[in-house]
Simulated scan of single mutants.
Amino acid sequence: MNSKRWIALIVAVVLLVFSLGFRMATSVVTADFEEMFNFQQDNKFQESVIEEGNGNNQIAVLNLEGVIQDTASNSVLDSGGYNHQRFLEMLEEAGQDRTVNGIILRVNTPGGGVVESAEIHDKIVEIHEEYEKPVYISMGNTAASGGYYVAAPAEKIVAHEATLTGSIGVIMESFNFAEFADEHGIDFNTIKSGEYKDIMSASREMTDEERDILQSMIDDMYGDFVQVIVDGRDMPEEEVRELSDGRVYTGSQAQENGLVDDLGTMDDTIAMMKEDYDLGNARVIEYQQGFEVNQWLGGAVQNLFGSESDVTGIKDLLRESNAPRAMYLYTK
């Protein structure tokens, strides 16, 4: 092992020990203070005040940023990013909080996983039905595919005129190196238990039967997407299918097509909710995930050993891309 790797190993161990010690100390201190003062947090998340007002009459803003995928690391060296489970918890917290009378999601995402998008969608529906709270959507630069899927059940969707939205549909992709491997004398050895176990394999061409199997899956998921819009936007299925050919729309075009209710900014969306629900004196708060020591440590390690981290990330991307994973995702 060369000196560079020894140094990397020592730094990683030191960071690991620091993280574990920090967590233990935090747990002890928190436990002691709760026991001594019988103190309990009313909210799991840090809050910042966007607009002052009545603290018992609040509008909560949640930010949905990045690709919607449940890939948040539970390791000590977590570099941060979109955390799916954390976001679902934030939605649940906003729904349960009796001081929150309205929720605005700031959506800026090209979409993501089918399951993850459906989980957010279902949570929004649950908030409507169980807590009877309005959920508005404020679209950022991009709110496409899965980003529109999660927006569909909201009571009001507001986009900027230049927002890219739509991209309604499902996509499944993989790499295929069969021709390249054949030209360079590369052999693949595959041992499988069933005919379709290596479907979408990178080492051979896809068969017509395999393509039909995957297409039927995509068609089912596409049908679910269409139904979500039919239910959420109260639009005829035929009209939704005409709009759902995978293309993206600007915010202005989406409004003309009935996919968006109004055009405006985040501030406009807040003003609309206040007017629609007589919340003129409401305090507007923003949920924040807060400081995570794991994210700080992960970022530090990436700064120290960025090249090796990049290679690992590329390997993971190639491995995941080769799997038959359906996505509500806008790809350029």
Score class of each variant (00 low, 15 high):
E119P: 00
G185V: 09
N57I: 06
I59M: 11
R247C: 02
H128M: 00
I168D: 00
V76K: 05
S201C: 13
L64H: 04
S79A: 14
V150Q: 11
N108R: 01
R211W: 04
S307N: 08
M172K: 10
E35T: 11
V107S: 03
R233A: 07
L9E: 02
I218N: 02
E308W: 05
G140I: 10
I104A: 10
E173C: 02
G146F: 12
G21L: 14
M24H: 12
F225Q: 00
A300E: 01
L88V: 13
D316E: 14
D267P: 03
V311L: 13
N43P: 03
F305T: 05
E89I: 08
I186M: 14
I137A: 01
S167D: 06
F180A: 13
A118F: 02
A60D: 04
K332W: 03
T142P: 01
S193P: 05
R98T: 15
T26S: 14
G112L: 04
F22N: 13
I59T: 08
Q69M: 09
A159G: 10
V29Y: 11
Q58K: 15
V29K: 11
Q295W: 04
D97M: 14
H184V: 10
V100M: 12
T99K: 15
N322W: 01
E161M: 07
A25K: 08
K192R: 14
G251V: 02
L77W: 07
E242T: 06
T71V: 09
D78M: 08
V114R: 01
H128R: 02
M266S: 05
L329Q: 02
Y249N: 01
G112S: 04
V28C: 08
W6L: 15
A144C: 09
R5C: 12
K197D: 15
F291V: 09
D224H: 06
V158I: 15
N2G: 15
A143M: 13
G264T: 04
M172E: 08
F291P: 00
G53D: 14
Q302E: 10
D224S: 07
V14Y: 11
S117N: 03
D198K: 09
G264F: 05
V13S: 14
N108M: 04
L15Q: 10
V284C: 11
W296I: 04
G112E: 02
F180W: 12
I186T: 09
D231V: 06
S244N: 01
T207P: 06
R211S: 07
A94F: 13
S244P: 03
N83K: 13
V28Y: 10
G102E: 10
V29A: 11
N294Y: 02
D212Q: 06
L20D: 03
N257V: 00
E129W: 00
K123M: 09
G185R: 08
Q289R: 07
V100N: 05
M139Q: 12
M273V: 07
